[in-house]
Amino acid sequence: MKTVLRLFLILTIALSFTAVQAAETINGAGATFPYPVYSAWAYQYQKTTGVRLNYQSIGSGGGVRQITNRTVDFGASDAPVPPEKLTRKDLLQFPAVIGGVVLVVNIPGVKSGQLKLDSESVCRIFLGEITEWNDSRIKSLNPSLKLPGRKITVVHRSDGSGTTAIFTTYLSKACADWKEKVGAGKAVKWPVGIGGKGNEGVANYVRRVKYSIGYVEFAYAKQNKLTYTLLKNPSGNFVKPSFETFQAAAASADFDPQKHFYLWLINAPGKNAWPISGATFILLAREKKKSNIKTVRFFDWAFKNGDETAKRLVYVPLPDDLKNKVRAYWKQNGIY
């Protein structure tokens, strides 16, 4: 008994201190939304290069906090960090992949891409001012659609998330009332509705609850075969959520390397741009050149080889010229 115990003790201590880092490891933490695509990339990257990228999805807020405290090699956030804050904390930031938030509804008889909404009507629905589907403000956008006079159930996220940050930023830009009463953030105090945990929770509720509306990441809408709506973008077009419209948003947006790409991809100017898109960002500690080079090498590899993987998981790869802008940014900071 005693010898066994001693053996265990020696074994664990040995494991703890000697077997460290047999392979090269990059540690990252942050946003949950890009977790599947980062881990898929990491899986392939390890197979081809032997380098491990351990990404922990602890949430965007956690990602910013961890990199600020320099406890990880990179942080990840769905919400862009403003340039002033980056300078203050001595951080670098660049986009890695694009996602989009789509509105999903459950109205019997209404199919995907049939219901048209604009920012004003979405805002009023989530404020609880439009309460029924046959409200004149919805009807006027959909003259040909038969809408029932049923009560709308709003479904939102109940946990903190980058998805919510993107969506509430959109709502804050859509109407002044939202900005004033609720505001934008990773978690907000919702005026109406029921809350689901995670994208899947919201998707679940919308699928089950008739006459409901919710917002989820595009990937979840697609995988769960939910009914999505069209949205009117600032160019006046009703667009359908798809790879093309997300990429149009990313391509038309003015990502400025001088501002560390700080940009909300909300209401991007492109003709076919989906109005509620968002890039998810990587944060680096400026002075940690060595580990930054490792991280950048990984993302450069992903930019070159990861597009198919991303698309299969329903994420939108960055458009090529944005990738090149990011590479130039790396070069400029001496880590590429």
């Binding site: 494991l15 703890s16 460290v20 922990q56 995670g198 899947e200």
Partner: peptide, 28 residues
């Protein structure tokens, strides 16, 4: 916490069955 790779280094995050169940069951 959790770790998506095999690790026996107790100074690092380590995966456990129960946390993995929580994460996987909630996932899509």
């Amino acid at each position: 916490f959790n770790n998506s790779f095999f690790s026996v280094n107790m100074n690092e995050p380590i995966s456990s069955l129960t946390v993995t169940i929580f994460q996987y069951a909630m996932g899509p």
